[in-house]
Design a protein around this nucleic acid. Structure first.
Length: 447
RNA sequence: UCCGCAAUAGCUCAACGGCAGAGCAAUCGGCUGUUAACCGAUGGGUUCUUGGUUCGAAUCCAAGUUGCGGAGCCA
């Protein structure tokens, strides 16, 4: 078959008046008898291809009238401007000259009508072809690209951390255990401890990869396997960390707005909300957050809501608390100096107030909750030894980590950013299950 | 793990103690501007499972399974 002038649908408008070749899949079709409208999808966009009986070979037109959803084909034809033409980007269509069927799809299950969550999740491998998923995963790719771009351009070095680890990175989470030639090993829940070693070698580093938590969490914000970006910086204070995070995230949001107007339109995202995401973000202490929540709870009439908002100083925030705090601001808000007891063992205590630590979480607006969590790390050798002993961690497993404090220990800080939560927020999605191609959630690992 | 809700055609749902139904999809036919096209026709059912109540159960009851929403835990 001839494939002269093979183009991508995203570039269709550049070829007005020219004869071109497209390859792709039937997204939808309208049959008008002697006239067929084929919406052809090639991964870069959707083009309306019009088959007129009188313009085509009789057999090829007959094939066109039998096309089923998701059948694959190669067409040649002439590009013309037509305001009636739907598609992505739309406004141009192709008058078909030849049409070759590559494969006839039979009974494609996902139709243009509505479907339930369970059905779509069972058909995730096919659901990815739908325009909404197309939009989300393209934005996800840009978010990853822009996060890495910004870091690479600002002197941060990508240093990969292992996925198979001999011990937990944090004391709280349940890990997936592996059989490592007869010895137990675990899937990483964070690259943080290795980042601290890498930071001492390279100054400013980050790791980016999948992390695994065997928690039986069943919420709109949890995945069993999720991707985390973790920068770690030598000589950084908590304030440096917040400055850096707001620069990084406002850059990413700006880039998505610049590159993905079409995708955001498909998702019906409120662009005003994203345009507000500029540095500086709001900053409040844990103490102030608790006070504000207590005041809000006191003023709340609905008893159910009142109970959800109730909080005592010293407790970690639940999902309703995070949402309530975030709603008090029109941009992301940093909450810093959490109680030491609810945070990880390696977080630096506040001087003169050891009951709170130099930690900071970033809460996204619109109820998306915590998207980053970070802190200054303990760099004093004796203090970190003491914390490991108090928590009851097996010292031998952490010996290498503790040794970092013996050779030129420095103040340092870092954070972890949950990629899927960030994608859900920027895309305005109700659930993280659509932010990753093949979500691993409680009781689901297929497909 | 706890609380709440649900499960009926390939899909989305209706029928709520008395004949198992619609729209979409599929198949066949018609139509030269469709945007979730429209019009006509055809095929399509272990009503999640097990047990119980009843003359009679998709419908009521019990247990289980699966899913969804929320809580907790967290990024």
């Amino acid at each position: 078959m001839t494939l002269h002038n093979l183009i991508q649908i995203a570039d269709l408008a550049k070829y007005e008046g020219q004869e071109i070749t497209l390859r792709g899949w039937v997204y939808d079709r309208t049959d008008k008898g002697k006239l067929q409208f084929i919406q052809l999808r090639d991964g870069t966009g959707i083009a309306q291809c019009v088959a007129f009986k009188k313009d085509m070979d009789e057999t090829e037109f007959a094939n066109a009238s039998k096309l089923s959803q998701e059948s694959s084909l190669v067409i040649t034809g002439t590009v013309r401007k037509d305001d009636r033409a739907p598609g992505l980007p739309g406004g141009y269509e192709v008058g078909i000259k030849t049409l070759q069927l590559v494969h006839h799809a039979e009974d494609y299950p996902i139709t243009p009508k509505e479907h339930g969550v369970e059905f779509l999740m069972d058909n995730r491998h096919l659901w990815l072809r739908s325009s909404r998923q197309w939009a989300i995963l393209r934005i996800r790719a840009t978010i990853v690209h822009e996060l890495r771009n910004w870091l690479d351009d600002h002197g941060y070095l990508l240093v990969d951390t292992p996925i198979i680890t001999p011990a937990a990175g944090e004391e709280t989470t349940t890990l997936f255990q592996l059989d490592y030639f007869g010895e137990p090993a675990y899937l990483a829940q964070t690259g943080q401890l290795y980042n601290e070693a890498n930071m001492m070698a390279f100054g400013k580093v980050y790791c980016f990869g999948p992390t695994f938590r065997a928690e039986k969490s069943k919420t709109r914000r949890h995945l069993i396997e999720f991707w985390m970006l973790e920068p770690e910086m030598a000589f950084f204070s908590l304030e440096d960390l917040m400055d850096m995070e707001e620069q990084l995230l406002s850059h990413v949001v700006k880039a998505v707005l610049a590159k993905h107007q079409r995708e955001l339109a498909i998702l019906e995202r409120d662009l005003n909300k994203l345009e507000q995401i500029t540095a500086p973000f709001a900053r409040i202490s844990y103490d102030e957050a608790v006070e504000r929540l207590q005041k809000l709870a006191a003023e709340t009439q609905d008893p159910e809501q009142k109970a959800l908002l109730a909080i005592e100083w010293g407790s970690d925030f639940g999902s309703p608390h995070e949402t309530a705090i975030a709603e008090m601001f029109d941009r992301p808000v940093f909450v810093y100096h959490y109680p030491t007891a609810v945070k990880a063992f390696y977080m630096q205590p506040v001087e003169g107030r050891p009951e709170v630590c130099r930690s900071v979480d970033l809460l996204a607006p619109e109820g998306y909750g915590e998207i980053t969590g970070g802190s200054e790390r303990i760099y004093d050798s004796e203090l970190i030894e003491q914390r490991v002993a108090t928590i009851g961690l097996p010292r031998e497993a952490y010996a290498w980590y503790l040794e970092l404090r013996k050779f030129g220990s420095v103040p340092h800080a870092g954070f972890g950013l949950g990629l899927e939560r960030t994608v859900a927020w920027i895309c305005g999605l109700p659930h993280v299950r659509e932010t990753i191609p093949y979500p691993r959630i409680l009781n689901r690992k297929y497909p």
